[in-house]
Design a protein around this nucleic acid. Sequence first.
DNA 1: AACGTAACACTAACGGATAGGGTTTTGTAG
DNA 2: CTACAAAACCCTATCCGTTAGTGTTACGTT
Lengths: 194, 194
Amino acid sequence: MTVPTGRRERKKAATRQKIADTALRLFLERGYEAVGIREVAAEADVAVTTVFAHFAAKEALVFERDGDFEQRLTEAVTGPAGREGLVPALKAEILAQVRHCTAEGAAPIWQMIDDSPALREYEASMRERHAESLAAAIAAGPGRDRSATAGRTLARFAVEAFALAREAADPEAAVDEVFRMIEAAWEAAGPSGS
Amino acid sequence: MTVPTGRRERKKAATRQKIADTALRLFLERGYEAVGIREVAAEADVAVTTVFAHFAAKEALVFERDGDFEQRLTEAVTGPAGREGLVPALKAEILAQVRHCTAEGAAPIWQMIDDSPALREYEASMRERHAESLAAAIAAGPGRDRSATAGRTLARFAVEAFALAREAADPEAAVDEVFRMIEAAWEAAGPSGS
DNA sequence: AACGTAACACTAACGGATAGGGTTTTGTAG
DNA sequence: CTACAAAACCCTATCCGTTAGTGTTACGTT
């Protein structure tokens, strides 16, 4: 084991990035459903099977950074901020993600997602995954004094807050409003003895 | 316009039911993914195109009564009970649906759903649809004194309560617990002026 | 220098979904 | 009673996402 980042890993990452970039460009140019996988592969100069070696499905080409979002969510809860105040830490992270997704330049991508049933469906199941791993982090960390159901409920509500805010006219204000409700819900869950 | 329920409508409904029944039987016998649409069509003695004329997708064969659930949800809110107490009315309806889905005989179906990623994904996007129509009903009816975001949040949380309860060890107790949290969240949303 | 393996390519196929076009059944109006 | 329009259905062919099977190349290791 020489260096941990050999040429092989760099080439693999480059191939993955080239596929994702090519796909996103084609999708934005001509529409998500109008572009086929075979076309993406040809334009990126790889085989179709290589595309699926890097991405589990066509929709995953659009949500390329999915893993980062999931990791940041759980880290917000297990990190120092999460131990101080669970709900405020969650709110801060969701707010950051909402800001990132409503930032300049991201609008066409989310427009495309909203226009495609397949992408909306994929995003919904993605949120379910995020909620599950977030629930595990809450149960293992700062949510130990609540019931399992309460923790899982908080996790679901938090990821739904993201979706609700993204659809709202004023996303950042919506994060405030929804998290006021979540805070109250978490209070009402009370300590586990309740 | 003689009678509103002519032979044509009855035959159509019969065909639809026969397809759904055949599909569910085959799915339970040999597994959802192991049975193809062509097979369902052959066994039901119809053409493949006819299957898709009645059901938008393969997954819809499993969630045949989807429309009923959605309608009952909105009616719980727009009906007399909804005007008395919005959240209690929602809770009662969700509890009824949870009871229905955990009743004797339904277990194998939900086991099959939990085992199939495609069905789980479809269910997630179904809930999103339910939440949207529920949000519309709330906004038009008893939720007029709250903000649009608050109403949409309540709608999402209510349909998530169903999913959370179904996954819990004690579904009915989970409905209680989650709706205590939802009630607090709805209180915190306050009247629109807040 | 030789070997094991990870990354990739090619071919072929499977299964869900749809379009095009034709046939029967049903409701209705003349 | 008949004629007609539309609904429901069938058949065929095809597209598209996805995967299996089978090599081939290039990298890392020994």
